[in-house]
Amino acid sequence: MRAWIAFWSILRKDMRTYYLKPPNLSWGIIFPLAWTLMFFIKSGSGFGEARSILPGVMALSILFGTTSMLAVTVTFERKGRSFERLLLAPIPLWVLMLAKTSGAVVFGIVNAFVPVIMASFIVDLGGMIWWQMGAAVALIAVSSTFLGLFIAVSVSEVFEAQTFSNFFRFPMVFLCGLFYPVTKLPVFLRPLSYLLPLTYGADALHGAVNGTTQRPVTLNLAILAGFCVLLFLISLRNIQRRWIV
């Protein structure tokens, strides 16, 4: 019970202090809008294409939202030493880190549905598989957040967190089949794609929105869940080794 009081308080505090701040809320609107406009301008197509690019824009909104926020907020608290207070609290480390990451997961999920709401005004969203979209969004948000945690544990400065995040994020934009199918990538790049969690998340989202997938949905979701567990365990081990020296 004691651990869950702490869990809830950390989540609430982070939502209030970081995620619900006006600059972050505006990020959630401007970011997907900018990506959508960029694709329309590049392809020269009309609004009718909105549905085909929706999975990619949703995945990008989650990826950039979660990794940026988590890596920066954790590094910020480490730098100001307030994170020490969390480490001194009598709650298991895994509960503490779940609490610290939950805010980013919620932020990612909310970010994902901003482009859906925007798209609903310009195209017909009928025929979408909503449960599949919900599951894919949740798992992409969790895996991206844990990727952010992995980054946060590896750096000590806020600017390093941003730079190191980009090292992972920008290749994922092109390699994970968000806007360009993995099967059309050069053969030598494909193995890299299959090592990235977003490849499976993007495929699941394409299935939910457009009805076409490279792999069975359950396999995509299971692999994503596997990435979530793996990234979380690696991050916990790194925290034990680096922060509790």
Binding site: A6, W8, S9, K13, G80, S82, L86
Partner: peptide, 18 residues
């Protein structure tokens, strides 16, 4: 936490101890 008030900081620290 710089963003929290004195009262909220203390309440938050109390919550960390359940």
């Amino acid at each position: 936490w710089p963003e929290l008030s004195g009262f909220d900081n203390l309440c938050f620290c109390g919550a960390l101890y359940g």
